[in-house]
């Protein structure tokens, strides 16, 4: 068990390396000349060479073979090896990251200072969406399991499947048309005060609540036949107490797992929702960076989203193993 936890935690390290390398590869994967991609083919030669230097595109990608050519000065072996490995785009990428020297191409702002604020907005949106999902799904799923095969059960399962199939890029505009344009209750977009958060949180949370309702129902159904529930009832506890205190509590393990896994998905999934509501988070920043071809900002966004996704997923995995004493792992 301990070995498993340790192994799982250690596996995160190579994955972190993969994430960093993939983010590095973003610049080098652009077909053709990355500089053309970023500033267009008509830009002045001087700014092109500047950009080239800034992004270290004048250096080889992984290995620098220059020190080994005949014309090179006869430096020592270690010196040559150092140059081979360090005078490359790949090592400069890590150096820049470590020094926090990744800067936006257009505004020259340091990337991570700029993204900090955006990240807070994304977390706020994902957290509220999670809350919306839990508030809907946990009571609904429990009720559906409690009255299995009743109309309540069928209706909530049908609702859940409709909810999963509802694309958020349709739900969002529909909500805007109804609540902002027709009724005028809530702002159309932007982030001005808490009322701006309501529609994005519902848009993002509703799809998740659908999945969560199914999971809650399944896991409450699993425990409903257990003896300790009969004991609780025979003690004279009200049905509500039996459900909330005894059944739901034991059914929480799979629910928490799904919550964790879905929270990671929410962080990524907020990209579309943020775009619809002009919510100033990481996802919108990512799309804007794609449009303005601001590769360093794009790299920063991908790095932050993937890192938090990876960390939340690993943490959920560990928590699940920790919470479930019945789990037998090799």
């Amino acid at each position: 068990m301990k070995d498993y936890l340790l192994g799982r935690a250690l596996l995160t390290l190579p994955l972190l390396w993969v994430v960093f390398t993939a983010v590095f590869a973003l610049v080098n994967l652009i077909p053709g000349d990355p500089v053309d991609f970023m500033i267009g083919e008509n830009a002045a030669l001087e700014s092109r060479s500047q950009l080239r230097q800034q992004l270290h595109l004048d250096k080889p990608i992984l290995l620098n073979l220059k020190p080994w050519s005949a014309q090179a000065s006869k430096a020592g072996l270690t010196q040559r090896l150092r140059e081979t490995l360090l005078e490359t785009r790949y090592s400069y990428f890590f150096k820049d990251l470590a020094r926090g020297d990744l800067r936006s191409l257009h505004s020259r702002e340091p990337v991570f200072a700029r993204l900090q604020g955006k990240f807070v907005f994304t977390l706020l949106l994902a957290g509220s969406a999670l809350l919306v999902a839990m508030l809907i799904a946990i009571p609904l799923g429990t009720l559906a399991a409690w009255r299995q095969h009743s109309w309540l059960d069928s209706a909530s399962m049908l609702g859940a499947l409709v909810g999963i199939s509802m694309p958020n890029f349709w739900l969002g505009p529909l909500l805007i048309m109804l609540f902002s344009i027709e009724l005028g209750w809530l702002p159309v977009s932007g982030a001005r005060g808490p009322s701006s958060l309501v529609l994005p949180a519902i848009t993002l949370g509703l799809g998740m609540s659908a999945i969560l309702t199914r999971i809650t129902r399944a896991s409450v159904l699993d425990v409903l036949g257990e003896d300790y529930l009969r004991t609780a009832r025979s003690k004279g506890l009200s049905e509500l107490k039996v459900l909330a205190r005894h059944a739901l509590r034991c059914a929480m393990i799979p629910i928490i797992t799904i919550l964790g896994l879905q929270f990671g998905a929410l962080l990524a999934g907020s990209i579309i929702t943020e775009e619809i509501f002009a919510w100033p988070g990481l996802g919108r920043e990512l799309l804007q960076a794609i449009r303005s071809r601001d590769v360093p900002i794009l790299q920063g966004c991908v790095l932050l989203i993937s890192l938090s996704y990876l960390l939340v997923n690993t943490a959920t995995d560990l928590l699940y193993t920790h919470l479930n004493p019945r789990l037998q792992l090799k």
Binding site: L15, A265, A268, I272, L287, V302, L310
Partner: peptide, 12 residues
């Protein structure tokens, strides 16, 4: 490795 990235992000 593929699980380390959200699918939709990779596709974008």
């Amino acid at each position: 490795c593929f699980q380390a990235f959200p699918g939709i992000l990779l596709a974008i």
